[in-house]
Design a protein around this nucleic acid. Structure first.
Length: 206
DNA sequence: TCTGCGATAATA
DNA sequence: ATTATCGCAGAC
């Protein structure tokens, strides 16, 4: 009989919540620092954030908020530390962390997670994923795997009272990263506002 | 592994 | 008409 340490249980002891001030900054800074943080959801599901994109409001023609507040993007103009969830291509939900000051309309799109716990629940939610690296390797995939839909638009990810929160297990973001081009956009394609953990197999595109 | 294409509906 | 995507088919 062998006694083994359980890495996730050990890590859980060191989970620290991210304060709202973490998000109350430029979305490009937040996008870098969200790398290697952990998104925790219901049913024991969690994943390490390995790919992000910053959207910069009125500065950014690719941002939903570029032309101002609408019914769809209202959450992005609200207080930081909440989740902006939107529907696209008639099929997919994608989620952003709201950043900056209220009314700035800036945020960070979560593009990929490395699944950590609750893999069975993720697989059940994404029966089309043939390999575990396909569970959360894209903005529409990770919402499916974590169970995020339009019902979650506006939830608070700082307090965790709505079932989702982002925490820090002490793993720092990679250092010295360069931004790369964002994916799937037509405008502002030259702005290097996508970041990912180098070499992680769950990143959506290399 | 990669490339191209159709699905599918809210938004502006 | 466009879209901050995904999964499948077919080529290699």
């Amino acid at each position: 009989m062998t006694v083994r340490y359980l890495p996730m249980d050990a890590r859980r002891l060191h989970f620290k919540p991210l304060p709202r001030a973490f998000y109350r900054r430029d979305s490009r800074a937040v996008a870098v620092e969200l790398l290697n943080k952990i998104l925790v959801g219901p049913d024991g599901r969690s994943g390490r954030i390995v790919e992000t994109e910053a959207y910069c409001g009125s500065l950014d023609p690719a941002a939903h908020t570029y032309r101002g507040k609408t019914a769809r993007n209202a959450t992005m103009f609200g207080p930081p530390g909440h989740l902006y969830v939107y529907f696209t291509y008639g099929m997919h939900w994608c989620c952003n962390t709201v950043c900056g000051e209220e009314d700035e309309g800036i945020g960070v799109l979560l593009r990929a997670l490395a699944p950590l716990t609750g893999l069975d629940a993720m697989r059940a939610a994404r029966s089309k994923a043939r390999r575990d690296r396909d569970l959360c390797s894209g903005p529409g995939r990770l919402t499916q795997a974590m169970g995020i839909t339009g019902e979650h638009d506006g939830i608070d990810i700082v307090t965790g009272r709505d079932g989702f929160r982002v925490v820090d297990d002490g793993t720092p973001p990679p250092r010295g990263l360069a931004g790369t081009g964002r994916i799937g956009i037509r405008h502002a394609v030259d702005e290097p506002w996508r970041w990912y953990v180098p070499g992680d197999p769950n990143v959506s595109r290399h």
